[in-house]
Amino acid sequence: DVEPGKFYKGVVTRIEKYGAFINLNEQVRGLLRPRDMISLRAENLNVGDEIIVQAIDVRPEKREIDFKYIP
């Protein structure tokens, strides 16, 4: 289970104008929005990159997770 405030290692699987999709594993995926990329620009991300993200909002009923990148 993903808990708000905890840090996780994930892999960038898709990049859109509104953010990057980060997979923690095959069943868990969330969104890293540009406003939550402190000191990281979306254009510096590539599909396949491994990054550490913090879960900031977890909505299990919608199967949605928002992440924040903190260097």
Score class of each variant (00 low, 15 high):
12 V>Y: 00
42 A>N: 10
71 P>M: 12
7 F>K: 04
29 R>D: 05
28 V>E: 04
45 L>F: 06
38 I>T: 11
54 Q>T: 05
54 Q>K: 08
8 Y>V: 01
51 I>C: 02
53 V>E: 00
38 I>F: 08
67 F>S: 03
15 I>H: 01
69 Y>S: 03
53 V>S: 00
7 F>Q: 03
16 E>H: 10
62 K>W: 08
4 P>T: 12
23 N>G: 06
21 F>S: 03
69 Y>A: 06
7 F>L: 07
51 I>E: 00
43 E>H: 14
71 P>N: 09
15 I>Y: 01
21 F>Q: 04
1 D>V: 13
67 F>W: 09
9 K>S: 06
54 Q>V: 10
44 N>K: 11
71 P>L: 09
42 A>C: 13
61 E>K: 09
33 R>I: 10
41 R>V: 11
69 Y>I: 05
52 I>T: 10
63 R>S: 11
29 R>G: 13
7 F>Y: 11
45 L>E: 00
12 V>F: 01
46 N>M: 13
39 S>F: 15
69 Y>F: 11
31 L>S: 02
57 D>Q: 14
57 D>Y: 11
18 Y>F: 12
9 K>W: 13
35 R>H: 09
36 D>Y: 11
55 A>W: 06
68 K>R: 15
47 V>P: 05
1 D>I: 14
8 Y>Q: 00
13 T>H: 04
60 P>Y: 09
50 E>F: 15
34 P>N: 15
23 N>W: 12
66 D>L: 15
9 K>I: 12
2 V>F: 10
9 K>E: 03
56 I>G: 04
31 L>G: 01
58 V>C: 09
40 L>G: 06
21 F>A: 01
51 I>D: 00
30 G>P: 02
1 D>R: 14
4 P>H: 07
25 N>T: 11
43 E>I: 12
34 P>A: 14
59 R>T: 04
30 G>A: 06
44 N>Q: 15
37 M>A: 06
61 E>Q: 10
34 P>Y: 15
23 N>C: 14
25 N>E: 05
59 R>I: 04
19 G>L: 10
47 V>S: 01
33 R>W: 06
68 K>E: 05
40 L>E: 04
30 G>R: 03
53 V>W: 02
47 V>G: 00
11 V>S: 02
31 L>H: 02
2 V>N: 04
60 P>F: 10
62 K>P: 05
27 Q>N: 14
51 I>F: 03
15 I>M: 06
44 N>V: 10
1 D>S: 13
26 E>V: 12
20 A>Q: 01
61 E>R: 08
67 F>D: 03
50 E>N: 09
27 Q>F: 15
14 R>E: 04
41 R>T: 11
32 L>D: 02
19 G>M: 09
15 I>T: 02
67 F>P: 02
32 L>E: 02
10 G>E: 00
34 P>F: 15
36 D>F: 10
38 I>R: 11
10 G>R: 00
27 Q>C: 13
60 P>A: 10
25 N>R: 06
26 E>S: 15
15 I>R: 02
47 V>K: 03
35 R>F: 06
41 R>W: 11
1 D>E: 12
19 G>Q: 07
61 E>V: 07
55 A>I: 15
50 E>M: 14
55 A>Y: 04
57 D>I: 11
66 D>N: 08
13 T>A: 08
33 R>Q: 05
60 P>K: 10
26 E>A: 15
46 N>Q: 15
59 R>L: 04
53 V>C: 05
29 R>H: 09
20 A>N: 01
60 P>S: 09
33 R>Y: 05
19 G>Y: 10
6 K>N: 07
66 D>Q: 09
33 R>K: 08
60 P>N: 08
53 V>T: 00
6 K>G: 07
11 V>H: 05
42 A>M: 15
20 A>I: 15
60 P>E: 07
29 R>I: 13
32 L>V: 05
28 V>I: 13
48 G>C: 07
6 K>Q: 09
1 D>Y: 14
27 Q>K: 14
44 N>H: 14
33 R>F: 05
32 L>C: 07
4 P>L: 14
28 V>Q: 07
55 A>Q: 02
44 N>E: 15
14 R>F: 05
66 D>W: 14
24 L>K: 00
36 D>K: 05
28 V>C: 09
2 V>G: 02
14 R>Q: 10
21 F>L: 09
53 V>M: 07
42 A>D: 06
69 Y>L: 07
8 Y>E: 00
50 E>S: 13
50 E>C: 15
44 N>Y: 12
52 I>N: 02
59 R>W: 06
7 F>H: 04
11 V>E: 02
29 R>E: 08
37 M>F: 07
61 E>S: 11
6 K>D: 02
43 E>L: 13
26 E>D: 14
44 N>L: 13
69 Y>N: 02
59 R>E: 03
22 I>M: 01
17 K>T: 11
32 L>K: 02
7 F>V: 05
42 A>K: 14
59 R>G: 04
49 D>C: 07
48 G>N: 03
14 R>H: 07
57 D>F: 12
39 S>A: 13
45 L>G: 01
37 M>E: 03
34 P>V: 15
28 V>F: 08
56 I>D: 02
56 I>V: 10
3 E>K: 14
68 K>G: 11
27 Q>L: 12
2 V>M: 05
21 F>T: 07
3 E>M: 13
16 E>R: 08
62 K>G: 06
9 K>Y: 09
12 V>E: 00
2 V>A: 04
27 Q>W: 15
25 N>Q: 06
3 E>L: 13
44 N>C: 15
45 L>V: 10
42 A>H: 13
31 L>N: 03
67 F>C: 06
5 G>I: 03
63 R>W: 09
65 I>L: 06
69 Y>D: 04
57 D>S: 15
68 K>S: 09
33 R>V: 08
32 L>H: 03
23 N>A: 14
53 V>Y: 01
14 R>G: 07
26 E>R: 14
12 V>L: 04
2 V>L: 08
26 E>C: 12
50 E>D: 07
6 K>H: 10
40 L>H: 06
44 N>D: 15
58 V>N: 04
46 N>A: 14
10 G>T: 01
70 I>W: 13
12 V>C: 04
